[in-house]
């Protein structure tokens, strides 16, 4: 089963993402910030990470840099999912090794398409 780690400090966003991802056949893990997410990745690397940017303790971008420097940390696909929607943030995310970028608010179609773009969802599943 494909696994997805949802990293977001908002419980509502985690719940929405979980619902969509489970429908697409993912096993979902949750983390509330970057620190939490690193611990989760150290236990087991997921196939894909849905990553918020602005979070307490360790932010999304800090997490991504730390992840990519870890052993096995280049394997998971990383999809940013944030309300930071200007070009400089997107460029910074891509630079740090993000594979895709969702500008919030998002819906199931956008999430599905981005998963498809990183090779983790089939077309026309929804």
């Amino acid at each position: 089963m494909k696994t997805c780690l949802v990293v977001d400090d908002s419980g509502v966003v985690r719940k929405i993402a979980r619902r969509i991802l489970e429908r697409l056949g993912f096993l979902v893990e949750e983390a509330v910030n970057g620190q939490n997410a690193l611990e989760s990745c150290d236990r087991a690397m997921p196939d894909v990470i849905l990553l918020d940017w602005e979070m307490p303790v360790v932010s999304g971008i800090e997490f991504l840099r730390l992840l990519r420097a870890r052993e096995g940390g280049t394997v998971p696909k990383v999809i940013f999912c944030t309300s930071l929607n200007d070009m400089s943030h997107i460029a910074e995310a891509l630079e740090a090794g993000a594979d895709e970028y969702i500008m919030k608010p998002f819906d199931d179609e956008i999430l599905h398409e981005k998963l498809e773009a990183v090779g983790l969802a089939e077309k026309d599943l929804l």
Binding site: I90, L94, E100, Y101, I102, M103, F106, E109, I110, E113, K114, A117
Partner: peptide, 8 residues
């Protein structure tokens, strides 16, 4: 712009 098109 998010539908159908990749971020790159």
């Amino acid at each position: 712009v998010q539908r159908g098109m990749g971020v790159q």
